[in-house]
Amino acid sequence: MSDGATQGRHAWIEPGVFEVAPGVHRIPLPLPSDGLRAVNVYAIEDGGQLVLIDSGWALEEARDQLETALGKLGYGFENVRRFLVTHVHRDHYTLGVTLRRTFGTSVSLGIGEQPSLENILAGRADGQASELRRWGAGELAALVESARDGDDKPPDHYEMPDDWIEGTAEIELTTRTLRAVPTPGHTRGHVVFVDANSSLLFSGDHVLPHITPSIGLEPARAELPLGDYLDSLRLMHSYPDMHLLPAHGPIADSVHTRVDELLAHHDERLKQTEQAIRNGAGTAHEAALKLGWTRHNRHLEEMDEFNRVLAIGETAAHLDVLVARGSLRSSTVDGVVEYRTVAT
């Protein structure tokens, strides 16, 4: 399966509109100074109108690029009937919200995102500082709090959706039926959209072709986000194999192949994380310092503040799964979660 993009690891970020299946078009939109580089929005032609999977970040450049792409298909923003959004992160949700203010477009979001969205709208968008303290990273928590000092206003580009997608739901379009499938893990309310007749999976950030998505980066973090994510990956094997239409990266021919790679990655990462505790780490922060990060195997302290927050949070997610499996034990001492091996 090819969408006409040129070859190369990052060729998928090139602006344009690329047909990935009859009546389905991939539109990459820019992200600002972001390691992800771009986000794919998918435009589905539907009886003279459009339904878009995800919307992009509420940036002027992204809005202009989306307008240009839709124009190449013979449509304008006024022809977009509905945004089906995979999750509440700003690079997926916020441009749809801003376009709704002008064009009245309907925006749909998974019900599991409601706690995080309520926190965002109440000005409690960043719960990471308190979590970082629990994970033993007090100095980094202070930096996060300092960066947000006095900034307790809700972001301009967030509002409640028009409707919540609850559970596994059939979404009837004019020309096709999509099935919304809850896939918690990356966020609590993440959903993917299955087009069974066309053998397409609009996977959002659940299944990505080149990277493993962050786990639990949200204002209302789940109790066991990695456990949820692994269950959601395994769920994909209950569906026939499909073409992978991800939010970040090029399209791919097999969802199952990538799911197996992601499961294997996390299995190996769980082993490495357990070994970090056996090698003397006691907290998520200490374990993260003993692990390599990114495909370049970088040390935690070589990374910027945002990516250190991600890394420590993901380490905590792996440690909590190990506790749930009985491989480790945990206790909380002076507000910090400490991990230890199980005596044999």
Rank of each mutant, 00 (worst) to 15 (best):
G280C: 10
R308G: 04
A324T: 07
L230R: 14
V97K: 05
S331N: 11
Y239N: 09
L289D: 01
H237Q: 14
D156F: 13
T86S: 15
D334K: 11
N40H: 10
A43T: 08
E223M: 05
P30C: 05
D205W: 04
G48R: 08
L52P: 04
I111N: 07
E113L: 04
D151V: 13
G189H: 02
G313Q: 07
H299S: 14
V255T: 14
T102S: 15
V144W: 03
R234V: 12
P154F: 07
L50Q: 00
G167I: 13
L84V: 09
P22N: 06
H157D: 15
Q65I: 06
P22W: 02
N279H: 14
L29M: 09
R90T: 07
G4M: 02
V337A: 06
L66V: 09
V97N: 05
L244M: 07
V20F: 06
A125E: 13
E67G: 10
E159M: 10
D151G: 13
S203T: 12
D241R: 08
I53N: 00
Y75F: 15
V333T: 09
S108A: 15
L226A: 03
L291R: 13
V337P: 00
T183M: 11
A58S: 12
Y158V: 12
T94E: 04
T183G: 03
L291T: 10
R134L: 12
A252P: 01
A141W: 00
G227W: 08
A21R: 08
E45H: 01
P213D: 03
G136I: 01
A264C: 08
L70F: 02
L244I: 13
I111V: 14
S55I: 09
L99V: 12
R134P: 00
V194W: 13
V194F: 11
R63F: 00
S55A: 14
T187V: 06
A287D: 05
A284L: 01
